[in-house]
Nucleic acid binder design. Structure first.
Length: 319
DNA sequence: GAGTCGTGGTT
DNA sequence: TAACCAAGACT
């Protein structure tokens, strides 16, 4: 089985001329990156951070914003962000609070702090240029195993195993017949890396293609197997699309610290939007009635640096 | 490895 | 409608 995959990977893109690739009668499961890439060239979305003129900073900003966040919700904040801060230097020149405010309601506002810190690091350590090595990218705040490789592939067109939840799902389904919904692992990256085209540019395109395929066709909830553009080779479909045996733990929300933190920060952020730089502590009581939890969450926001204590009030950092 | 960290649209 | 969940990172 493994040797079959290697053979496919060694000749990823057949020549445009000549007869179509003969489909082997029974090759077992295969990822089929060439077919996925052909589908992508025709059906992939035109997203602003995919524009040829979008540089590495644009890719980095988009990837951080897209962490656990749908594309549709990112589009507007991304546009405003890039217009205001077209370079890491521009963002680094402003206080972190400006980034938190501009983050708006994207969620996980610590990402805004990390992106601001990453911009500062890029300015200080890399002369304002987003680094192009894995180790240097991983050293940036908010950049993990996925995002680092996404920048390498999508911005610098390098051969890197970009495995997010979408890619992980496609790999698991087609090659292993599973759909466990678990996050990507190093083993997933190793598996994909062995299947990527040898050429950097082609590997980069294939990486974008498989991610898009997972986002649009081989989706988590309702995969459109009936219109799957790929020929046979999906072990998941062949085995009756088995569902996950281990149900994912439902994430609690009502009454959690996350909800309270969100309300607290929203009060200060909304005030900043109205030009009010500070919020007196009593004004935060409306966020949550229970004082112990409210205070605990306020302290955690201060500890994170999302808020700063200023006498009897709080404000966004640097405002 | 399991917990934590936002938000709002979808089913 | 309550549950689900969408391009992860960090501790």
């Amino acid at each position: 089985m493994t040797s079959d995959f290697a053979a496919v990977a060694a000749h990823p893109v057949p020549p445009d001329t000549g007869p179509p690739n003969p489909v082997p009668p029974d090759t077992g499961p295969q990822l089929n990156l060439p077919a996925i890439t052909r589908w992508f060239r025709r059906h992939g979305r035109e997203l602003p951070w995919r524009h040829p003129d979008a540089g590495a900073w644009a890719v980095l900003v988009s990837e951080v914003m897209l962490q656990q966040t749908p594309v549709a919700r990112v589009l507007e904040p991304y546009s405003s962000w890039m217009q205001r801060w077209p370079t890491p230097d521009a963002l680094a020149a402003e206080p972190a609070g400006a980034a938190v405010q501009a983050w708006g309601r994207l969620g996980y506002p610590r990402r805004a702090l990390r992106l601001h810190a990453a911009a500062a690091a890029i300015t200080e350590r890399h002369a304002g240029v987003v680094p192009a090595t894995l180790d240097e990218l991983l050293a940036l705040p908010g950049v993990g195993e996925y995002t680092a490789r996404a920048v390498l592939a999508f911005a610098y067109r390098r051969r890197a195993a970009v495995v997010d939840t979408n890619v992980r799902r496609v790999l698991q389904r087609r090659l292993h017949g599973n759909d466990d919904g678990r996050p990507a692992t190093a083993a997933d990256r190793a598996e994909l890396l062995a299947l990527l085209p040898a050429q950097h540019e082609r590997a980069a395109t294939a990486s974008a293609a498989i991610m898009e395929f997972g986002a649009l066709v081989c989706t988590a909830r309702q995969p459109d197997c009936g219109h799957c553009p790929l020929p046979a080779g999906c072990l998941w479909l062949a085995t009756g699309r088995p569902t996950a045996t281990t149900p994912r733990r439902t994430q609690a929300w009502a009454g959690t610290d996350r909800q309270v933190r969100g309300r607290l920060l929203a009060i200060v952020r909304d005030a900043a939007d109205r030009g009010v730089g500070q919020v007196l502590l009593p004004e935060l009581e409306s966020a949550w009635g229970e004082p112990v939890q409210r205070e605990r969450c306020l302290q955690s926001l201060l500890a994170d640096g999302l808020l700063v204590r200023s006498g009897p009030a709080v404000r966004l950092p640097g405002h």
